[in-house]
């Protein structure tokens, strides 16, 4: 028939990524990562070793039939499937995400379920989609009973964190972050745009403007990459926050930073798997607020403090001769 999975053009894509430290004393190798992320018996976990160790689970689906949140209070019922998947970077940072896209209009009535299953990751509105209002609503978060991609991401994360291969011994304390995103198409001739907001404590919202015809997987990967690096930065900032380097207990403060050296500092690698067409968005964030600039400053600070603490030790060693 050739119409398989064919839907109206996407006007809105949305998702949420939850990022956390994998609760294991040792980072997992790719083999072990393959076991943890094997969400389906018959599908491979995709594994990549360049430019860093990265494993990606197969996509799984969750069926939904509920209202979409809308900032103007419009009632929009939508039916379809939301994709959930997980990724592990360097065997250390676990991400569980969910995402879906919405066409501008859908059938007036709910279709047989088979119609939705051959359109994985598409949630169709019943009737016309008020795209702007729904984008706002999704970013703000809906009311109970409205579609919540965060809930689906959290469900997957909870399931993964129970895996028997995880010894539940985290090498240091850290918090989860949530990155919620929506993408809307930009008019012809316009380049992509990004609006990154550090909302509450652990919530970031990202609003993307995407040229039409951009591969949705590329958008999802960009958001996963943003979430990963935002988590790294957030975690390192928190580690250094309140450190008393110059004081009498300076040596202890520096020792407390050791997990950063052991587990975090080698993970910074923005755009490792981001589509070239979208890397301009990363560059914009590098310009302002300057993610990498802040990261490198923090890392340099840790290294300087470590070096400072090493000098007295060196002196002791020399005088002891």
């Amino acid at each position: 028939m050739g119409t398989l999975g064919r839907t109206r053009p996407t006007t809105l894509a949305c998702g949420e990524v939850r990022t956390c430290l994998l609760p294991t004393s040792q980072a997992l190798d790719l083999r072990a990562a393959g076991h943890v992320l094997r969400l389906r018996a018959d599908e491979r976990v995709l594994a990549s070793e360049r430019p860093n160790l990265y494993a990606l689970s197969p996509d799984t689906l969750m069926g939904v039939d509920c209202a979409l949140p809308a900032s103007n209070g419009a009632k929009v019922r939508a039916v379809g499937t939301v994709v959930a998947r997980a990724a592990l970077t360097e065997g250390r940072v676990l991400q569980a995400g969910s995402f879906f896209r919405v066409p501008d209009t859908g059938p007036d009535q709910r279709q047989p379920w088979g119609h939705y299953l051959v359109r994985p990751g598409v949630v169709e509105p019943l009737g016309k989609l008020p795209a702007q209002a729904v984008a706002e609503g999704l970013l703000k978060g809906g009311r109970p009973g409205e579609l919540d991609p965060g809930l689906i991401a959290e469900g997957l994360l909870t399931r993964l964190l129970r895996h028997p291969l995880l010894d539940q011994k985290s090498p240091f304390k850290s918090r989860r972050t949530r990155l919620r995103w929506v993408a809307l198409p930009v008019p012809d001739g316009h380049g992509p745009s990004i609006d990154f907001t550090v909302a509450e404590d652990d919530l970031r919202t990202v609003r993307l403007g995407i040229p039409e015809g951009t591969d949705q997987t590329a958008v999802v990967r960009l958001c996963e990459d943003l979430a990963l690096h935002d988590w790294l930065l957030t975690t390192l900032v928190r580690m250094l926050d309140g450190s008393r380097f110059g004081s009498a207990d300076g040596p202890m403060a520096v020792l407390a930073l050791r997990p950063a050296v052991d587990h975090l500092m080698h993970l910074w690698m923005p755009r490792a798997r981001v589509d070239r067409k979208l890397s301009a968005l990363w560059e914009a964030l590098e310009e302002r607020p300057g993610f990498s600039r802040q990261w490198h400053t923090l890392v340099q600070r840790i290294r300087d403090q470590m070096a400072l603490q090493a000098i007295p030790l060196l002196r002791e060693a020399l005088t002891a001769r």
């Binding site: 969400l39 018959d42 069926g63 039939d65 509920c66 039916v79 409205e146």
Partner: peptide, 22 residues
């Protein structure tokens, strides 16, 4: 294990009101 693989591919048809918690 074909049957087990298919069991892992079941995606339940959501009754109205399903918002992602099942």
């Amino acid at each position: 294990p074909l049957a087990e693989s298919v069991a892992g591919r079941l995606v339940e048809s959501p009754p109205p009101g399903s918002y992602g918690l099942r």
